[in-house]
Design a protein around this nucleic acid. Structure first.
Lengths: 194, 194
DNA sequence: CGGACAACTTGTCAATGACTAGATTTCGCG
DNA sequence: CGCGAAATCTAGTCATTGACAAGTTGTCCG
């Protein structure tokens, strides 16, 4: 090894990390393959060898995001007595912890929609959510588990999205959004007391 | 008037409509100012006079979207005995009727965030939602109206977003998403029967 | 050691966003 | 009515970008 020469070592990860940075601070519209290449110290065409396209980079990010989300959700489900609420809280936490991934994951126009890895990752998430909801006792989630899954996912996803966009006026400044979300779920899933 | 000559007549609207078309079919990442100009039959720099920027076009679209959404929501609130559920259904219907607007409205990185018109339009929506929720009898929405508003908004927004992204497996193919959403709200807001 | 393969570079091309200067038209206002 | 200012649009330019092609360097395996 003659110092950093021809081969980068792990260009793929370097590009992904740089993309995460840019997206986090300036949004997905601001990424430029050439800029990512510059940041990694390689030529402008190097990234194309790992991700065929610009969309390829974002597709890879989306896949990675789904994988990380899966980790969050499985952690919440590993609890002895999994609660629907905690599943949602995990979802929200993921969105806040990994904003760049979250940003790209649900933007089909930015990536290769039919990428097999992406499709598989999406299915895994859907399965995790459906399974997690179904595991909750029917008295606490209604008769239709499928509908309950849609409700839970919608609530968590909407909350995370709106919060990130600054559309939700924070009840108490500096409040932990995940805690706010917890309060919201309490309101919805147990309106008759608790 | 010597036929269509120098002045277009309503270039602003023509550009916006063209943008709506492109976004609807290919997403916001696919718009190009020059392309929009071509579609309107004007020179490549003409749009810049109505919308300073590319972001300016999207900002205008976001403002317009908020205005249309406000119309949907006020219509739902004009009911004699406004129901929280119908407010949500209106929200979902708007998202499905005007996908391009909806797509842009919650994407801060695409427009000029501090545009006064945009800020005002956003505040109007937030006010409508908060007011609509507060008008619902406290027994049917819990004690904390602010929290209820967040819940309702999150649910409707998440559902609309996920549906549009194809993340929700349609319970019955061809089902009206707004009806599915109605079922979802029934599940959440009245879990103890109804 | 030799060739196949992967990783990277250099060069190129059309397209784009933004900017400038100038042409044409409309409109306010005396 | 008429003139000048402002609005609208055109034409030209520049740096940047994504994609592609062809060549270079390094690695690995038989």
């Amino acid at each position: 090894m003659t110092g950093r020469s021809y081969h980068h070592g792990d260009l793929r990860r370097a590009v992904l990390d740089a993309a995460i940075d840019v997206i986090t601070t300036a949004g997905p519209a601001a990424i430029s393959l050439r800029d990512l290449a510059r940041g990694a110290g390689v030529s402008h065409a190097a990234p194309a060898h790992h991700f065929k396209d610009k969309a390829g980079v974002l597709t890879a990010l989306a896949v990675e995001g789904h994988e990380r989300l899966a980790a969050y959700l499985t952690a919440a489900l590993e609890d002895d007595e999994p609660e629907l609420r905690e599943l949602g809280v995990s979802y929200v936490r993921f969105a806040l912890d990994h904003p760049a991934h979250f940003e790209v994951m649900f933007r089909p126009d930015l990536h290769h929609e039919d990428d097999p890895e992406l499709v598989a990752a999406k299915e895994r998430i859907a399965g995790l959510l459906a399974g997690g909801v179904a595991a909750v006792p029917a008295e606490r989630r209604g008769a239709d588990a499928g509908l309950a899954a849609i409700a839970a996912w919608s609530l968590a996803h909407g909350f995370a999205t709106l919060w990130r966009g600054g559309n939700i006026q924070r009840p108490a400044s500096g409040a932990d959004p995940a805690e706010v979300f917890r309060a919201v779920t309490g309101l919805l899933f147990a309106p008759s007391g608790e």
